[in-house]
Amino acid sequence: MSGKPGIVVLGSPRSGTTLLRRLLDAHPNIACPPETYLLSAAARFLHADQFAAGLRIGVLDGLSFAGFEEAEVLARLRGLTFGFLRDYAERVGKPRWAEKTAFDAFHLAEIRRLCEGHVKFICIQRHGLDVAVSLRDLVDKTGGYVQELHDYVRRYPEPLEAMARAWIDTATAIAELADSSEDAISLRYEDLSADPAAQMQRVFEFLDEPWDDELVGRALAGTGQVGFGDWKTYARSSVDRSSVDRWRSLPEPVQVKLAQICNPTLERLGYARIESDDDEDDADAARRRYEFGLLLNRMKNEDS
C-alpha cells in the first residue's frame, strides 16, 4: 500500500461522475469500482433527527449514552466502509482506492463527517439545467424515483423543477466543500468532456499520482466492467459531448421558469446566467398558451 489517502468523487447525479470514475480507474495506481453505495449507507447510519428541544436522536448520541465516543464510532464505521474499498483495490492489484456513487451528494454532511481528513475529494459540477433534463430522462428509464429524488418530487410537483432543486442543493453542498477544503479539487463536466486529458492531468497532480498520455484512451476502451452507474457511459468508447447544453431544447417557458430558480447557483458556479426576454407566463398567458397548443394540435390533425 502506498499510504496515500482514498479518493471520493462527488457530483450531482448525471454530472459525469461515471465518466470520471472510468478515467480514475484507468490509472495503474487507483481502483474505482462501480457504484458501491457504501458511503450513502454509512451516511444513513449516521443520520440523526433533531427536534425542538435540540436533542439529537441517532446512533452517535445513542451510543454516547452507552459510553462510545463519537470519534470511536466514526473510526469503526470508517474501518468498515474503507475496508471494503481497500480490499477491492488489493484484489485488483492497485495500491489506492477511489469511490463514486452518484447519490452520495445528497448525504454530503454525513459523508464529510466520516471522511474529511482521511480522503481526497474530487468534485465535479455540471450545468444545472442539463442535470435536470438528464435526471428526468433517468427517471423515465428507471420508471421511478430513488428516495433522494422522491423527497424533491413530493415537494415540487413539476418534475423538472424538482430535479433542478435537487441539483441546487447538491451542487451547493459540493461547492461549499470544494471552497473550504484543501483536500478537494473541483472540475466541470463541460471542461472534462471537452478535454479529458487536460482535466485529468490536473486531477492526478492534485492526487500526487503520475500522468501518462495513454490513460484517456485506456479508460474509454475499458467498456467491459459492469456495475451500477450511468449505463450510457459504460457503453461508450469515446467522450460524447452531445449532452452539453441539451437544456436549450426545452420550451422557452420552461427555460424561463428554471432560469429563475437556477440562475443564482449557476452564477455561483461560474456558469452564465440564462437570460430571456420573456417573463414567466401569468395565469392568463398560460391559459392562452394552452389554448394555442390545442388549436395547433387540431391544425396538425387537419393537415394529416
Binding site: 420550451p251 422557452e252 398567458a285 392562452r288 398558451r289 394555442f292 397548443g293 395547433l296 396538425k300
Partner: peptide, 9 residues
C-alpha cells in the same frame, strides 16, 4: 410546435 405557440402569443 413550441415556436408556433410562441409566434401566436
Amino acid at each position: 410546435s413550441f415556436v408556433m405557440v410562441d409566434l401566436m402569443m
